[in-house]
Amino acid sequence: MYGRKVKLRFFFIILFLFSLILSVFLILKSLEENVVYFQSPSDIQLLEEIKYKKIRVGGMVKENSIEVSSEKINFIVTDFKNEISVVYSGVVPNLFAEGKGVVAEGYLKDRSFFEATKILAKHDENYMPPEVNEALKEK
């Protein structure tokens, strides 16, 4: 039905697209370390050496772990497998709370202690009115 040229052009597009996808995939695969915005406490445990380099650690703020003193705030970031305690002095975002997602930017002291220079709250994908949340809590 279609001419030879049409088929060839179609074949060319498929080939071009395929090689493009493959190269982008390989690039992203090799850059994975930099593509991720933060590392989980479990990733930190697997680190071979601790460098003095700015990194981000993310996870959930452990329940009942926030301790506020006059100069700094201490809390524990967990991914429910491993934990890391974080110290930070400065203003935290409004949505920063226990049991919610957090991303801390700063320097790793050792595998279980992190000194943050910036705290970001991570919002989850749940959207609901307050009444629904109350109803869910009661259950």
């Binding site: 994975e32 593509v35 991720v36 915005y37 933060f38 590392q39 989980s40 993310g58 991303v103 970001l120 991570k122 919002h123 989850d124 994908e125 749940n126 959207y127 609901m128 009115p129 629904v132």
Partner: peptide, 22 residues
């Protein structure tokens, strides 16, 4: 990847995590 941006709330196949009023 781990991103600061939250995952999708609306899924065609499974239940959406956004309330119907929204």
């Amino acid at each position: 990847w781990n991103t600061l941006h939250q995952p999708a709330s609306i899924n065609v196949l499974s239940k959406s995590s956004i309330h119907s009023s929204m």
